[in-house]
Design a protein around this nucleic acid. Structure first.
Lengths: 145, 145
DNA sequence: TTGGGTGCAAACAGTTTGCATTTTC
DNA sequence: GAAAATGCAAACTGTTTGCACCCAA
């Protein structure tokens, strides 16, 4: 069931993000609404550039500023993959890790349950609070092998 | 026991890296020798910029080109940390993971033994060869807490 | 109505490229 | 002597900033 190109639960996410901007004391502007809608529509990893390109009527600076705002609020998270781009995803989506094919650069999302346990264990051993973590596994994918 | 500021086993590493340039069919030049010596002297993570700065008489381009050569040869590896810089280390140094303090950006090397096991297990489950992996844990370090 | 947000253009940082000169093999 | 590497400067890419105008609260 869709409204335009957006399904109901996507609209919920959009509303939640807009609400969080409001709560944090920032203005809910038209540009921000549109940027958020676009992020939700993407449904996965995206780069700042891709986002900016799919919103040609919004200034690049505004896209970058909004992305930073969402990042600082924790609405969006950054993933670092060794190919000179920062990727973003919605924080609301489940936490997961990534495989990156060194040949074709295809990125897949995976879930290493064992890791979460190791990290919890590690947190007990050090005297610092863990905020988040980031794991990429570099592979040659089955298509490229 | 040191020669200049360099100990014997560092000299071995330098020679090994120079040799690998030779073997791969590239020329062993003076600039490359000096860049390699500097990398070995650094003994840990460094950025391209730091490296270039500590070798002011060598052109930036040469530093970047040599770093890329070493990376492509596998002599050096890139570590991605979400702070807008690419970090490098010698591949010969033990594999380890990193904690990054979100406040002061201090980076520490750690070793999550459990993770290595999870990754090995994961490799069995997927149909792809794992080349390497990258883990950063974001924390608030004890100094900043 | 006023302070934050926008959009443009200019600035910036890190990196790469073109090219004449130098070095290695 | 030919091919590869260097160093400079210019180009390029992704991102940020300054500033006049605009709009949400």
């Amino acid at each position: 069931m869709q409204i335009g190109r957006m399904v109901y639960d996507q609209i919920d996410i959009v509303n939640k993000l807009i609400e969080s901007i409001n709560i944090s004391g920032n203005s809910v502007t038209n540009s921000r609404r549109r940027i958020i809608a676009e992020i939700v529509r993407k449904e996965g990893l995206f780069t700042s550039e891709e986002l900016a390109k799919s919103l040609p009527n919004i200034g690049r600076a505004t896209v970058y500023r909004t992305l930073r705002l969402l990042y600082e609020q924790g609405s969006v998270c950054r993933i670092n993959i060794v190919d000179d781009h920062s990727y973003y995803t919605l924080s609301s989506s489940d936490h997961h890790h990534h495989t990156v094919c060194k040949k074709c650069n295809k990125i897949d999302e995976i879930n290493l349950i064992g890791l979460e346990k190791s990290i919890k264990q590690f947190e007990k051993n050090i005297n610092s609070e863990i905020l988040s973590h980031n794991l990429e596994i570099y592979i040659i994918c089955s298509d490229c092998a």
